[in-house]
Amino acid sequence: MAIVVERKRLSWLERTYLPQIVSGLYITLKNFFKPKVTLEYPDQYTSLPAGYRGAPTLVKDSQGREKCVSCQLCEFVCPSKAIKVVPGEISADSEYAYIEKAPSSFTIDMARCIFCGMCEEACPERAIVLQTEFSLNGLSRSELLRDKRSLYAAGGILPDKIMKWKKVKDNSELEGSH
C-alpha cells in the first residue's frame, strides 16, 4: 500500500519559487568559488586504499619459488573466462620437486578480466593476488594477454611464512622433533 506523505503547505512567497531560486543560485555560486575536488589523473596519482582490486598478478614466496600449483580453481571460478592455465609437472630433480605441480603456462586476458577478485578468493595457495596496477593498456588484444612471465614480473614476492616445499623427508626426522 502506498504511503501518502503529507506535503507542507507552501506560503505565497514560496509558491512564486523566487526565494528558492535565489537561494539556489547563491549555493551554486558559492560552489563556483570553492576549491576543486578533481584529481588531475595522469599528472597526479592518488593513494589507493587497502584492498584495492587492480590487475591480478602471480606472486612468488620469499624464497622466489612460484606459489601457484596450477589447481585451476581460478580458471574455474573466473566469471569472464579470462584465465587459462595449462598444468605441468615439476621435474623430479628440482629443488621444489615435493610440490610436484606448477603451471606450464598461465595466461590472463586483461581485456576480459573484470577485476572481481574471485581468483584471489579461490586460490588455495595465495598465489594469485590482485594488486594496485589499474592502468592497463595496449595497442592490440595480444598485448593485453599476460603470460606467466609477465604475471610474475608484475606480482613480485609475497613475504609470507609458508614454505610448502620444505618438508621432512622421513619419519625418523619427526621422532627427534617431538
Binding site: S70, F76, E100
Partner: peptide
C-alpha cells in the same frame, strides 16, 4: 592423466 586437467572442467 596426471596433471592434465581438473575433472570439473
Amino acid at each position: 592423466f596426471r596433471f592434465k586437467m581438473r575433472p570439473w572442467f
